[in-house]
Design a protein around this nucleic acid. Structure first.
Length: 995
RNA sequence: GCUGAAGUGGUGGAAUUGGUAGACACGUUGGACUUAAAAUCCAAUGAACAUUAGUUCGUGCGGGUUCAAGUCCCGCCUUCAGUACCA
């Protein structure tokens, strides 16, 4: 019987679906285990071979855990709101819901053919109203909460109102807006309703505020900080500008410290934790106020080095700082204005790219040093960022290189306040390595002591205090888009009101156009039915807004990360319509035990989800304030792109104002194109004689041919060389291009010349890049499944290399794992059926089996799936050589392989006479006693270097080995009667004797 | 600049965490079977010399510790990823 993988895989995929083999129950006598993948965004392009990598790894682990006797939750769903579907809708008018549904269908088919053990009965889609009902619900909970630093948790807003009513906000220590005014209880009670709402907004965990946002004109929306890479949008690479807009924000900064501390509790990779730490950007130091001379204002700064306060020789403000124009003296006015204007013109990108140029201007103003009382000049400079700290710094040139460079450039004095340090060339920033000098009461103190003392002294005179600063900004939560969750918000007198949760979900309205309205409102402004009636508590027609009971609804939608910040919990109880999840379900599944996904979400999804989880924990909804115990980042599978070198000549006429005969111009060839085989091109580049020269000559003769007579114009050509992607499917394993297929693919080049190697082949250049449609290097898993089967695909993806690593895909290599599966099949099945019988297994058989059990179990627990595949190959080769037919060996071997290659394992398991799925079979027990022979005469082989290899039991003592070695005939022979100086013994392996 | 990861054959990658470096696979070469191809099987495959069984060199570079170093220590080089006038 042949290994007919297509038939076998279809059969068992249907069986698993029909029998709901992998359905998880919310209660069980078994221990629970939750394995989660980052759910995909269903793009129109479908899956390529890189996508399933993480899913295969998690599936192996989930199946392994089932063999281990766990009740495993392994769900899957779709992050189905997003930009591409909307952009497609804008272009074609096709509703995003329709394209999304189609894409999901493709994804599902592709996922199913790989044989994952997902519990599809728990599928969620973020764009499904029954799901985003709960995204909206959490939004409302956040709106109704504030962060109390005293209890260090989120509390209900009604608690805050109570405090305001009895004692105002003076004693409140909460996460809130910076520019908050103090008020008393009686103030509060006299405020009108709108004023009260305005104040509360400054405390709520999600709030509406006019903030400077990252506006992307090309996408027509705002972006969060993590959606911007190098000053352009992550999606599409469009420029981003700063703009003031009224937007919803999430007060994630309230959780900065807990998000930082929580990292110590979770088993995530160090690099990922480090990214989050950097993103949160905690710095400990002091806030210091400098009083302006001849002004009432003060300049507040944040510094991490209050110990260097006596080294301050100037202040620097960001050009955008609000005090700049107020304090500039008339003499300096024109200079300062010119500088501010010049900086404003420079884009964010220019400023980032050009950090070397030192620029700035003197304002003419002075502040008073808090201790020496001496005047300190105030400058502005673009090296100070408006967005960080207070937008102003106390400049200590002897201790900070940027301040030093600025001072040197503008001839500002650089006082030295460090003991025995040379600062004539550069600043001295190594704070641990010196002591403070020339600093009054700080003299002779170390950095740590001086910092403490300086803060204490500042507090005494009321001009500063210890402060911790975080880089983490609140996250903008509004998007001016259609295809996202609508806010459950309507407006009365311009103040946002939450819709009662019992009327959720507020479903996305139909719109005619997915573009913003003519007046620049978000796409939802196009909806005719998008207003809230407080009588019927339903969405009604916009035209009724004049009615006193009908109010406008929020036009923005939520960002992509809204839906993905709660899906992992929703899987636990996905069909619950009364609650986000039942307490019974969440207390059973608790949190994700293993989460697998890409590291690109480090400062986006993975941070926001932790924030929401901590909030839900504060509200008593979840038992843990971290949602994922362990996280693994799978590496990316890269594509191997193929390139051809294109050389072309294009002719042009240089007329020099002399009339050209249009007839002659028409005759000009519009360019000739040649493609050059890789090594020919290299030769050409190295100045060697190649066939390209013929091509160049040809172009030269053409030039002569078309050189129109004087007075009509001069013809010349431009030679261009282009490195061009070609579709990898036209290239074979030896890098040879199928020229005919290529010509068919790119019609415009059907007349091009192909300059080949001497042997007539045309070779392409290869390079490893990210897999992408535009690079024509995508390998489709569908074709792999047809040609080699899903089990081969699964094994090969694991075999490629360590899970976390980036590695290139190379389809040619799959024959290795594929022929392994065929070999394995032949081990079990002969031409006339099953070969397995009940004979007693031999010692060798048992050794092979237990060696394999041990290795595979270790591998899975360490997530080194690549080496287990090798282990299987060795096992099958050994058992084939041993002609093993014993059921006692082959049955457990199948269980070992089944997480990796479930279809073939299921089929053979079934042929062995089992009616139950192999997924319920217990994982084989390892027995070390099979690995070694228990014999007193350990076999010793001598390699000529006083070194011996023995096969020894693992539990033998060193003394016993020593005795055995010294008693050995060969050892005696070598030592020739002398006593060894030293015997070094490593149990299980090697003995060195130093004679 | 800072942070993190990594440098091993022609290629992807192993190496029991200090113990025979190169497992396993791809590729290449040769052979068997076949009219032929595919498939399958066998052999060789780090380099150099000897080509019999041997010897020497070999894990980015230079040192060190050790009976023993890809692995540990010190000093460099290179690559990739993230991040950045963050005060």
């Amino acid at each position: 019987m042949k290994y007919d993988f297509n038939q076998i895989e279809k059969k068992w995929q249907d069986y698993w679906a029909k029998n709901q083999t992998f359905k998880a129950e919310n209660h069980s006598d078994k221990p629970k285990y939750y394995v989660l993948d980052m759910f995909p965004y269903p793009s129109g392009a479908g899956l390529h071979v890189g996508h399933p990598l993480g899913y295969i790894a998690s599936d192996i682990y989930a199946r392994y855990k089932r063999h281990q006797g766990y009740n495993v939750l392994h769900p899957q769903g779709y992050d189905s709101f997003g930009l591409p579907a909307e952009q497609y809708a804008i272009q074609t008018g096709q509703h995003p819901a329709i394209t999304t549904a189609e894409n999901i269908k493709t994804y599902r088919r592709q996922l199913d053919q790989i044989g994952f053990s997902f519990d599809w009965s728990r599928e969620v889609r973020t764009s499904d109203p029954s799901y985003y009902k709960w995204t909206q619900w959490i939004f409302i909970q956040l709106f109704n909460s504030w962060y109390n630093y005293k209890s260090d948790k989120a509390e209900d807003i009604s608690e805050l109102i109570k405090i305001f009513e009895t004692e105002g906000n003076v004693h409140v220590n909460a996460a809130c807006d910076d520019d908050l005014a103090f008020f008393t209880a009686s103030d509060w009670n006299n405020f009108n309703d709108v004023k009260k709402q305005e104040i509360l907004l400054q405390y709520r965990l999600t709030y509406l505020a006019e903030t400077e946002v990252n506006w992307c004109p090309a996408l027509g929306t705002v972006l969060a900080n993590d959606e911007i890479v190098n000053g352009v949008s992550e999606r599409g690479g469009h420029p981003v500008i700063r703009k003031k807009m009224t937007q919803w924000s999430m007060r994630i900064s309230a959780y900065a410290e807990r998000l930082l501390q929580g990292l110590d509790k979770i088993d995530w990779t160090d690099s990922l934790k480090e990214s989050q730490r950097n993103w949160i950007g905690k710095s400990v130091g002091a806030a210091v106020s400098f009083n302006l001379i001849e002004h009432d204002d003060v300049i507040d700064v944040f510094t991490t080095r209050p110990d260097t306060i006596f080294g301050v020789s100037f202040m620097t403000l960001a050009p955008e700082h609000e005090l700049v124009f107020k304090i500039t003296t008339p003499e300096q006015k024109s200079e300062v204005e010119a500088y501010v204007e010049a900086t404003a013109k420079r884009s964010e990108r220019d400023r980032m790219a050009d950090v070397k140029t030192i620029s700035g201007a003197f304002t003419g103003a002075y502040v008073e040093h808090p201790f020496t009382k001496k005047p300190v000049p105030v400058w502005i400079g673009d090296y100070v960022l408006a967005g960080y700290g207070t937008g102003a710094v106390m400049s200590v040139p002897c201790g900070d290189q940027r301040d030093y460079d600025f001072a040197k450039h503008f001839n500002i004095p650089i006082p030295n306040i460090f003991e025995g340090v040379d600062i004539s060339e550069e600043a001295f920033a190594d704070k641990e390595k010196t002591m403070i000098a020339n600093s009054d009461f700080l003299n002779g103190l170390s950095y740590k002591q001086a910092t403490k003392k300086a803060i204490a002294e500042l507090e005494k005179i009321g001009q500063g205090k210890g402060k911790t600063n975080y880089r983490l900004r609140d996250a903008v939560f509004s998007r001016q888009r259609y295809w996202g969750e609508p806010f459950p918000v309507y407006y009365v007198n311009g103040m946002p009101q939450m819709i009662d949760t019992k009327y959720l979900p507020i479903e996305l309205p139909e719109v005619e156009k997915y573009l913003p309205t003519e007046t620049g409102e978000p796409p939802l402004g196009n909806a005719t039915k998008w207003a809230w009636c407080t009588v019927t508590n339903a969405v009604v027609d916009n035209s009724q807004i004049d009615n006193k009971k009908v109010f406008p609804l929020e036009l923005n939608t939520m960002p992509g990360w809204a839906g993905s910040s709660q899906y992992f919990n929703r899987y636990m109880d996905p069909h619950n319509d009364a609650e986000i999840f039942s307490q019974e379900a969440i207390n059973y599944w608790q949190q994700v035990d293993l989460y697998i996904g890409g590291s690109e979400h480090a400062t986006g999804h993975l941070l926001y989800s932790r924030f929401w989880q901590k909030f839900m924990f504060d509200k008593g909804l979840v038992p843990y304030d971290e949602f994922a115990k362990k996280l693994i980042n799978q590496g990316m599978i890269l594509g191997t792109s193929a390139f051809v070198f294109r050389i072309s000549f294009s002719f042009s006429v240089y007329s020099n104002n002399i009339g050209i005969n249009p007839e002659n111009e028409k005759k000009l060839p519009n360019g000739i194109v040649a493609f050059v085989s890789y090594s020919e091109y290299i030769k050409y580049k190295n100045g060697e004689e190649t066939k390209i020269n013929d091509f160049v000559n040809k172009a030269d003769s053409l030039k002569k041919e078309y050189n129109i007579s004087r007075g009509e114009g001069i013809v010349d050509y431009n030679q261009t060389e282009v490195l061009m992607h070609v579709d990898v499917s036209f290239v074979n394993a030896s890098d040879e291009l199928n020229i005919e297929a290529f010509k068919k693919w790119r019609e415009e080049f059907k007349k091009a010349e192909f300059i080949c190697e001497d042997d007539g082949t045309f070779k392409v250049k290869r390079d490893v890049e990210k897999m992408s449609k535009s690079k024509y290097n995508v390998v489709n898993p569908d074709q792999i499944c047809i040609d080699y089967g899903a089990d081969s695909l699964r094994l090969y993806e694991m075999f490629l290399g360590p899970l976390e690593q980036y590695k290139p895909w190379n389809t040619a290599g799959i024959t290795g794992v594929h022929s392994f599966l065929k070999k394995m099949w032949r081990l079990y099945v002969g031409e006339n059926g099953l070969l397995v019988d009940n004979v007693e297994p031999s010692k060798d058989n048992l050794k092979t089996l237990h060696k394999t059990i041990k290795k595979v179990q270790e591998d899975i627990e360490n997530f080194s799936f690549n080496t287990s595949v090798s282990t299987f190959m060795i096992a099958v080769n050994e058992l084939t050589a041993q002609k093993c037919t014993s059921k006692d060996i082959l049955e457990p071997l199948l269980i070992l392989i089944s997480p990796y290659a479930p279809h073939i394992a299921e089929e053979l398991w079934n042929q062995l006479g089992h009616n139950e799925s192999i997924s319920t079979a217990p994982f084989p027990k390892f027995d070390a006693s099979h690995l070694v022979e228990s014999s007193k005469n350990y076999p010793i082989s001598f390699n000529g270097k006083m070194r011996f290899t023995l096969e020894l039991p693992l539990d033998i003592s060193k003394e016993e080995i020593e005795k055995a070695v010294l008693a050995n005939e060969k050892t005696k022979e070598q030592l020739q009667g002398r006593a060894p100086k030293k015997v070094i013994v490593v149990p299980g392996k090697i003995v060195n004797i130093v004679g």
